[in-house]
């Protein structure tokens, strides 16, 4: 068990050892986002920009326009939300090499409550031209994606969480840009998930009475793996998407947008935050409250026809 943010901190250190032009920025959350790991080893290449996310994104743009590859971190709320327009105009419009690595996304933030639970960040980030959007599920996938985005030209958004999550993969994990991963092949119904909902999907698949589902991990929301999604839609009657994000604009929307023109006879149900804000509570209690825990999801899916 480790959090994706812990994997982020470690991956940054590994990258820093390999690549001289990696620069890391943070906005007074170095211990939470784990960029503090990088700071310990490379203090001269880590800049704490203070509680000023808008400026941090602009500074990241200036560094990237000077040959640096910049990892800029804050909580998803303040990176994708607070500094949205700086990311759009100063980073994405000039197509600069800034990797916005946001932690504490979604309701799994827990006790801090709705003000700190970004449930709109995937929607915001994937709407911007040039931006690529990644949602790793576990520590191994996080490490691989953090290293991969170094070589993926232009702006990238990596969405990570606060809480510890079980491993889905192992040390041998290889990330392939734009390729989803079929974790289990079943029939009739497919669950497509991202982030920590992948672990929940795997658990749910063992609890279902009426279905033996296929499980797909979409670690890259943009560009989305269209070929895989079409294949899944053709071979199943029902798709259920799972995300700790609003059902408006996130993974579910991306899947629907992708599949709609094909007119494949496959229903799609989108589970996530249903146009409501989160609230304070323990992470597990919040998933129950919003019917996104394994029991609720299994019950919901078993009733689908």
């Amino acid at each position: 068990m480790a959090s994706t943010r812990e994997a982020y901190g470690k991956a940054l250190v590994e990258l820093g050892k390999e690549k001289d032009n990696v620069v890391v920025l943070d906005a007074d959350l170095t211990k939470s986002t784990k960029t503090s790991d990088f700071k310990k080893v490379f203090p001269e290449r880590h800049f704490n920009m203070g509680i000023a996310e808008a400026n941090m994104m602009g500074v990241a743009a200036g560094l990237a326009a000077s040959g640096k590859i910049v990892y800029a971190s804050s909580f998803a709320m303040f990176a994708a939300g607070r500094a949205f327009e700086q990311i759009r105009n100063s980073i994405c419009y000039p197509n600069l090499n800034v990797k916005v690595c946001a932690t504490h996304a979604g309701i799994s933030v827990g006790e801090d409550g709705a003000s700190h639970q970004a449930i709109e960040d995937i929607a915001l980030m994937r709407a911007i031209p040039n931006m690529k959007v990644f949602v790793p599920s576990d520590e191994f996938e996080t490490r691989a994606i953090i290293k991969a985005v170094y070589d993926i030209s232009g702006p990238c958004y990596v969405r990570m969480g606060r809480s510890n999550v079980a491993a889905v993969f192992d040390e041998n994990y290889q990330y392939q840009f734009g390729k989803g991963i079929v974790l289990k092949t079943g029939m009739k119904l497919a669950i497509i998930a991202c982030g920590l909902m992948v672990q929940k999907a795997l658990k749910v698949s063992t609890m279902l009475k009426n279905y033996d589902p296929t499980i797909v991990n979409i670690n890259t929301i943009k560009p989305i793996d269209e070929a895989l999604l079409v294949d899944v839609a053709k071979h199943h009657d029902i798709i259920v998407t799972l995300e700790e994000h609003s059902v408006i604009g996130g993974l579910g929307s991306a899947v629907s947008e992708c599949l709609a023109p094909y007119g494949i006879a496959c229903k799609h149900y989108s589970l996530g935050m249903r146009d409501v804000f989160g609230r304070s509570g323990k992470s597990d209690d919040l998933f129950k409250y919003y019917h996104l825990d394994e029991d609720s999801i299994a019950k919901y899916i078993d009733e689908l026809k």
Partner: peptide
Amino acid sequence: SAAVGMAI
């Protein structure tokens, strides 16, 4: 802000 980044 970008100018600050360039100067850094």
